[in-house]
Amino acid sequence: MDLPPLSLDQLSAVLSTVPTSADLYNTLSDYEEQACLISAKEVELLSVFYTTFFFSHLLTDQIEEARALTKRMPQPILQTDSIQNCLLLLRAVWQRKHAGIYKILRELPWPNRAQSVVRSYENYFQQKTLNEVSNSYEAIKPAAAATYLGLDPALAQQGDQETIQKFTACGWKWDPETQLLHPNPVITAPPKDNGLQTELSRVMALISH
């Protein structure tokens, strides 16, 4: 099926209609072909498209492919603020610098058209980190937990009630005596393993032939 022509409005329409991050990634993958054919003079459109496409990689945990994308973006847009911010974000995500990630997402200027996907990623990253911390720490200092989740570490260290409540709302326990938070492990279904089926199918295919 032919896609509607790529434009800023069409990008906004895609962002507001796709139900999942995987759908966003798939749709923008299809649009990459149109983006390749757009004149490099259309800097704004290309910059917003590649920024959005970059975030769709992060939203689907494809960090390595996000890096590859930055290598095949058209040269003229590499110097735009938006793409430069993407490169900074990629480095921070790659190095798992949580404080840096929130700072880049919140404080650097992003194009208005990409704001929704930036906010989506911030929420996604925060939730993902919350799950990871919950399953990795038995006890954690409020400042460290706040850093992981993009909250103010200084306030958390002082035992700020509002900050502590944000953690207890997630099922964590606060021990005022030790001044430590005790995360509640998040039970998530293990990722579906298609590898086994693929391997077995391979063996069976070899036997059949």
Binding site: P185, I187, A189, D193, Q197, L200, M204, S208
Partner: peptide
């Protein structure tokens, strides 16, 4: 965590079922 363990056992059972299905199909 026991719930976590339970989830993993369930996932293992599912994997075994998938494996058996694939073998049967093969």
């Amino acid at each position: 965590h026991p719930f976590y363990r339970e989830e993993h056992i369930r996932a293992k059972l599912m994997r075994a079922k998938t494996a058996l299905d694939t073998i049967a199909q093969g």
